[in-house]
Design a protein around this nucleic acid. Structure first.
Lengths: 106, 106
DNA sequence: TATATTTGCAACCTAAAGGTTGCTTATTTA
DNA sequence: TAAATAAGCAACCTTTAGGTTGCAAATATA
């Protein structure tokens, strides 16, 4: 089934894989060596990341190099945009207004 | 148990709650009205968001207004920083280098 | 004070997530 | 061509996530 990116990065192993692949493309076997689990377990994580397009395969003989897809990762950046004003402005104007109204009601 | 923010934002309902609270603080009852599920289910999501500090409670009589905690959401922004260079530069130098080495080996 | 309202907690159920082992397929190499 | 290597797929198991209902505690109101 089609995975979504938020669910994909929820797992710490998958986040570690993305960190590795952001530096250099790797094969599943090499990735598996980095973690204390079987190759098949890592392979499942790769499948999830691939299905939601966060990584892209590049076949090279019997090996497959997985590349990090920065473009897809940017979707997080876009989602975060809606919250940026919350930490960039000292005060949320609307929130302040509502607090005032609530205080008046009491 | 202590939750982590990646797991917290993996759920679509929790993301919707965060979007609501980023605009204005709300009580659990008001939040529950917005979703097609029981108040208790929403309350569980609130608990997860609260445990990882993404929202903060403000008691007001028997009501509790939950506020969005922008500072905590910034942690996600910091995690994303490690990937920014990947989409900001046209080409990943190291990746290009490794591809070159691999091609020479064949 | 009795009643209604808001919230949180606990027990329970079902589906999915993350792990394992075993097998098949494709490619490389001795 | 036979053996070894890389990777994916399927079946299975255990834990957890997300939902439900029911109940208790605290506060507000008639």
């Amino acid at each position: 089934m089609k995975q979504d990116i938020f669910q994909a990065i929820a797992d710490p192993t998958r986040r570690a894989i993305l960190t590795l692949l952001a530096i250099q493309a790797l094969t599943p076997n090499v990735m598996a060596e980095k973690f204390e689990m079987t190759r098949q377990a890592v392979s499942k994580h790769i499948k999830v990341l691939h299905e939601c397009d966060l990584i892209k395969p590049e076949q090279s003989g019997r090996e497959i190099y997985y590349h990090f897809n920065a473009k897809k990762m940017q979707e997080f950046d876009h989602w975060l945009a809606q919250f940026r004003q919350n930490w960039e402005t000292q005060f949320n104007q609307l929130d302040q207004l509502l607090t005032t109204i609530k205080t008046q009601k009491q």
